[in-house]
Amino acid sequence: MIFAVILAGGTGSRMGSTDMPKQFLEIKGKPILNHTIEKFLPNPQFEKIIVLSPKAWIGHTKELVRKHTGKNDKIAVIEGGATRNETIMNAINYIDREYGLDDDTVIVTHDSVRPFVTHRIIDENIKTALSCGACDTVIPATDTIVEGDGDAITAIPDRRRMYQGQTPQSFKAKLLRDSYNSLTDDEKEILTDAAKILVMKGIKVKLVQGETFNIKITYPYDLKIARSLLDEETE
């Protein structure tokens, strides 16, 4: 079975003066979250689309889903965790309780504030995760990457080997959970995303080609870009 896992558990502190998490901000009359969900709904491969929300916003999230998609049994809204990876583990535990996990159960995890993911990217994530166990969506780095210690350069890696990470990140769910549970507390503290869990365990994570427009809406300026991209989609 294959599940979409939409990560809407953040509070969006970098968006500035807003009284709600950024995934609930509206663009073109619809919350960003709903634009994102709509990219996954048409794909018949998904058993369920699981939306993970901050506890205080679960009721609001359910109402937005109902308002913009109607009564849709394909979507479940559940509580996220304190961190990104705990949120993903909540999704895996939900799948285990409701459906059971086997070695080929796949989760396609995606930022709720990346509403421009394409059907091609989603399909390639599913195919790669099924065949290889794990994959990460990336685009080649176009700028020189500089490593520093705060006030001085310590290294300049070869740009040809550098990529910018996006989402989806997709995994065989049991493999990811078992790998996460085998980490020490100190190792869990330094995690920045789910793919790093497997990298730390020496498990290969394949690359899937992303798109430059598959942006994450993080700052107020990103909202302007998103509105322009939505204008192009509707032309």
Rank of each mutant, 00 (worst) to 15 (best):
G133C: 00
I107Y: 02
Q169M: 10
T61R: 14
I139R: 10
G210P: 10
G100L: 12
D102H: 09
W57K: 14
N43W: 02
E187V: 01
P21M: 14
A194G: 02
K127I: 11
D102V: 04
T118F: 04
K55M: 11
V146T: 13
T128Q: 02
Q45R: 12
K172F: 00
F24A: 14
N181A: 00
G29S: 08
P54F: 14
K206R: 06
I92A: 06
T105P: 04
D231L: 04
I145D: 06
P42M: 07
I58S: 12
F171M: 00
K74W: 03
N181L: 04
I215D: 07
K22R: 15
D231I: 02
V5T: 13
M162D: 12
D185C: 03
K55P: 07
E63V: 06
I121W: 01
G150K: 13
G10P: 09
L101S: 08
T192R: 04
A129I: 03
K196Y: 00
E26H: 10
K172S: 02
L183S: 02
L229G: 06
R120I: 02
I92L: 05
T128G: 03
V77C: 15
R177N: 00
M200H: 00
K196C: 01
V138Y: 04
L41T: 07
E98D: 10
I95W: 05
N85W: 02
I6G: 10
D73H: 11
T36F: 02
P140R: 13
D222E: 06
V51Q: 10
K48A: 03
K28P: 02
E98W: 05
I225L: 13
G59P: 09
E86S: 11
E235G: 12
M200I: 01
R120E: 15
V208E: 11
G100D: 12
N72H: 08
N90Y: 11
D149A: 15
P220R: 07
A134G: 00
S228Q: 09
I92T: 09
